[in-house]
Design a protein around this nucleic acid. Sequence first.
DNA 1: AGTTTCGGCGCC
DNA 2: AAAGGGCGCCGAAACT
Length: 561
Amino acid sequence: MTDRWALAPAEDGGVELAPLGGDGLPAGPVVREADLVEAVRSRPDVTRWVWRSTAEVYPRLLATGVRVERCYDVEDAETLLLGHEGRYGEPRSAAAALARLRGGPVPPDPPPRSAEPGSQSPLFEPQGTPVRLADLLAVYAEQQRRHDRAEHPDRMRLLTAAESAGMLVATEMNRAGLPWRADVHRAVLHDLLGERYAGRGEPRRLAELADEVSAAFGRRVRPDLPADVVKAFAQAGVKVRSTRRWELESLDHPAVKPLVEYKKLYRIWVAHGWSWLQDWVRDGRFRPEFHAGGTVTGRWVTNGGGALQIPKVIRRAVVADPGWRLVVADADQMEPRVLAAISRDPGLMEVAGRESDLYQAVSDRAFSGDRAQAKLAVLGAVYGQTSGDGLKNLAALRRRFPRAVAYVDDAARAGEEGRLVRTWLGRTCPPAARTGEDAEDEAGIPVGDDGTDDRPWVPGYASTDARARGRFARNFVVQGSAADWALLLLAALRRACAGMAAELVFFQHDEVIVHCPEDEAEAVVAAIREASHVAGRLTFGETPVRFPFTTAVVECYADAK
DNA sequence: AGTTTCGGCGCC
DNA sequence: AAAGGGCGCCGAAACT
């Protein structure tokens, strides 16, 4: 009745396998089989596979239609455990973990590879250094013991399991691809940019706008060159430090309007134009390479194609297959809800216990109904705003929600002082490298206060670098705990969709898209609601906090919300 | 010539 | 007193 097995692919295409007991130790002899895929396919009762690297194994399984229920990715767990132990930066490969266990030279990690435009998932590329199953089992057993020594062992086990689940989801998404209508994309481009001229010249609309800018300055100006634009403004008697949009828009000059419009369209052209389409869309699918846990906060990244930055106007090209639908689901006010759950602030939990607009409720309690101010205050608290109206708003927020603000203040102070900062499940913020400036500060001016946590965090004493680390740490606990929750959400949603034709095809921090036959759409909507509930309880325990989603069943992504 | 950094902006 | 967290992407500029 063993439901957990470990496997290690061999160099000749074969595989070593062993059943594991409840304690994580081998419960039977190591067996050798000739075919990895067949070995997995013939063991459908296995509910969790322990392997070195999901990227090494799972694409090969998916390529022949074999899915697995759960996995445990030893190298990902190694990364998370090293971070938790304050050993960020030590080599994270299974080979390195084994060397640390046995004593001996620790091999450095192989350099990361980057995606080529249009490349399929790297089926036949080497993925790190393979290890023998006996060695993998030794590392795995030690990792179990290291979980026991974590600050919250149960949460740490949940974290490594959740991120392994995320890697399964990411691999499946990479295989599925996002439905993409190249013809619609081209129509949008033509609409916005005009004809595409031969060669590498600008499209018509950009050329016209560049002419308008030049006319406004009375000389030839290249609007795509910030240095040229700054110089042109200077010659016109307008001092401007940069060509950022908010700065330009405060100027009174006839070049501003065409310039801002040019920059907007230029961005579309270079980042999501015709050459992007050529590079990244094949056979009706955009296939970015999703990578779970690619950032220090646990947010995902994509490799290639800028999949997490698809401009709104371009989403018109994301269209479901005939007879199918896109279920687009967006978590409502995820960050303040997560802050409520991790800080256990009674007032904020009460507000976050409703499914209605959280910012409106916060503003009713602390900002006389001014929702915009309330939203700015909450985001300022999370992002570490240190000046302007933000401070005033933060004070109002602190009066009503003291524990919530104290929670992020504490994180900021810990970050400034170089202490470890963790997400709810235990992902750990990397300590920044020390600088000379910090050493000076510590020798002279005190950085923080004496460690009591009931007074407001006050900027202005620490060095610039230390303050930046404080902002980073402040944001880290919220953004990272939100990422913890999102992993559990994806895992639960994936399980709910397992019996359906529905596929997860896109994920962006707090938003997920499921591609499904029309008659499954309502079941998917229900599955998202249920998965959100399960994820909230699993991640944060029993709290009143709710994580509602706005869902839309559409044929085109651009029609959602 | 090839590689790294910068400026700007897209998304959350 | 115009601004803060995480990313990726592109071309240009600044390097080696």
